[in-house]
Each structure stands twice: as structure tokens, then as C-alpha cells.
Simulated scan of single mutants.
Amino acid sequence: MKSSEAEERARLETVKTRIQHALQDSEARLNDYARDIEAQKHYLWDSRADMDHIEKISARQSIEQSVMTGEAVLAQQKRLLKLARSPYFGRFDFARTGSTPVEAIYVGVHHFHDEHARRHLVYDWRAPIATLFYDYETGPAHYEAPAGAIHGELTLKRQFRIRDGRMEFMLESAVNIMDDVLQQELSRAADDGMRNIVATIQRDQNAIIRDARAPVLIIQGVAGSGKTSIALHRIAFLLYRFKDSLTSKDILIISPNRVFGDYIANVLPELGEESVTEIGMETLADEWLDSAYRFETFLEQTSRLLETDDEALRRRIALKASPDFSSCKFSSDRARWSLPIVGSDEVNTTSCGYG
């Protein structure tokens, strides 16, 4: 089932047409819900004098249900609008063991099910089968489905860049396919915010993102290694994987400062998830300390460093940024931080540079 670039472009046009039909359907449904809600409101207003308390509650609940359903359709419409610009970024053909037909799987930021053809035209990157795109090159492969492990063989793998409904390039399967696309993405002009990386997730990153068993997961790496981006994509995956029990309201992002919070703010909405609550470390410290202790904000500390030549201040800052400071203990009677040093028979203390 190896199709040419011309066939892929034709397939893209077909998918775009199907998406446009779905958008038209969603617009019609939204108009129907709007008219229905308006009619229910008029009925409630005109009949309120003849309705008892239970009937009024029932009418209000009916209106609220219609509003919720309409909001769900509106959210779906927003996803469809994004898909219309870039329906998918990858394809792989998978032949399941014991099954004759080879299935072409297209992977995108969101799934798209063609209601008329009754089949998936695009799979969400977080779907179980989509992990094959990130974890395997052509050859034997398997993935974990709710019913158990599915084994088979990848017979083809491709990656696309589609913008504003136009296919800019298509790469055939190769060991370096991810590297090629990654170079293409890195060559793009940077903007003011972090972007999603669903098209360039590496195998080891995919393992971190999809780990659903670890109750606590720490992502370590040097600066610029993608820790934050992987963490945000993991949040998106968990919201997808546990959508029946987990919502964006259950998640809190603690960021070092407001600039960083603004920088990452667009990633989850790009992935189709609601923005989660984000709070700066200084705000969190202020709430927890409840004004019992005063601390310098990052801006105040930076201003002092720039405006004064205080060597002692620089030494204290350097110490507090070191791993040793994590073992310091605060002694309230002496108002000093102390670093434990193990002696022969007792634990002595030395100043941690505060006070």
C-alpha cells in the first residue's frame, strides 16, 4: 500500500473536504441548539406563573443541559478548525499478525472520525496505536491496547508538514526521519511562546509522556533538553488517558516566574486541552508563609545585585543555589540556617551563610 506523493496530496484534499462537511454539520447543530435554548427560555418566561417549583427546576435543568451540549459542539468545532489547517503530521501502515489487510494510520494533534464513512481518518497522537509512530521504524512492532498487546509489522512510515491546508513536504520512512523533521522544525523562526512537539517526539520522550503507572515522575535533564515541553505533553496525555477521572482543574503548574508561565501558556490549548492553573513560586511562597517571613522576590534580588557591590550577598545567593543548602536546617532560637556535619559522637552544625 505504498502510495506516491500525488496520491497523498489527493488524500489530503479528501480529508479536508470531509472536515469541511463536519464543520458545516457542527455549525448547523450549534444553530439548532441556539434556537432550542431560546425557545426554552421563552417558554419558561411565558409559563412561569403556571409552573410549580419542580417544573421550573426541570425547565432550568433542560436549558443547562442544552447549553452544555452546545458548548461541547463548539469545542469540537474549534478542533475541526485546527484540523482543517493541519489534519495530520504522520502516517504508518500496520499489518496486524494474523490479519491480511494492511491499515494506513494517519496521526494528528486531534482525532477525526468521518461519520459518513464510519471510519477514523485521523488518530489522536495520544491514542494507543499512535505510539507505533514514535517507537518503531519499519519492521516488527507492537503496542498495548485495552484488550492487550497487539503485534504486527510496520510496512511504511511517512511524515508530513501541512500548513494552512497545504502539504509543504513529505518524508519517506528512514532511520533518520525524525532527525530530518526535527531539523526542519528547528530551522523555523522562533516566536514568543513554546510550541507543541507532537511531530518530533523521540522514543525515550514518548516513554516518559505515556507512563501511566508511576505515581510520581521526576524529569531530569540539562537546561534546554526539553523537560518542560515533555511535562506539558505528559499532562495532555494524562488528561486524554484518564479523561473520565482527571480534568484540567485537578492539575497545578508551579512556574519560576510569570514570564515563564506566559511562555508555556499556549502549549496545552494547542493540544486541545483547557489551560490548567498556573502559579508562580513567589506567589505560592507568599500564600504559604502567610506574611510570617519576608523573602526577596526575584526582581528585588536582581535589583540589589545590580545596584550594590555586596560580596557577602553574592556568597549567600551562591550557597542557597547549591545542593548543600537542601540539607540545611533552620534554628529559630538562633535565627540561623545550619548545615549538619556528622562528627564522632554527635551532629555539630556550621553556619549555612544566613543571618
Rank of each mutant, 00 (worst) to 15 (best):
D52K: 10
H53V: 12
H53D: 10
E55Q: 14
I57W: 07
S58W: 05
A59K: 05
R60F: 09
Q61F: 05
S62C: 09
S62Y: 03
I63E: 03
E64I: 09
S66N: 12
M68Y: 09
G70R: 14
G70K: 13
E71S: 05
A72F: 03
L74V: 08
A75F: 06
R79K: 15
L80G: 02
R85K: 15
Y88E: 01
G90D: 00
G90C: 03
R91W: 01
F92I: 04
F92W: 02
D93M: 05
D93N: 09
F94S: 01
R96G: 06
G98Y: 02
S99W: 06
P101H: 06
I105L: 10
Y106F: 14
Y106H: 14
V109L: 04
H110E: 13
H111Q: 11
H113Q: 09
H113L: 14
A117K: 13
A117R: 13
L121T: 00
L121A: 03
V122Q: 01
V122G: 01
V122Y: 00
D124V: 04
W125Q: 05
R126T: 11
R126A: 11
P128A: 07
P128Q: 06
I129N: 03
A130K: 01
L132W: 01
F133W: 03
Y136G: 02
Y136D: 03
G139C: 09
G139H: 06
E144F: 10
E144H: 12
P146E: 03
A147E: 14
A147C: 08
A149H: 07
H151M: 10
R158E: 02
Q159E: 05
R161V: 12
R161T: 09
E168R: 11
F169L: 15
F169S: 09
F169M: 09
L171S: 05
E172D: 15
S173Q: 10
A174E: 08
V175A: 15
V175K: 14
L182Q: 08
E185V: 14
L186R: 13
L186S: 07
L186C: 07
S187D: 11
R188M: 12
D191E: 11
D192W: 11
D192T: 09
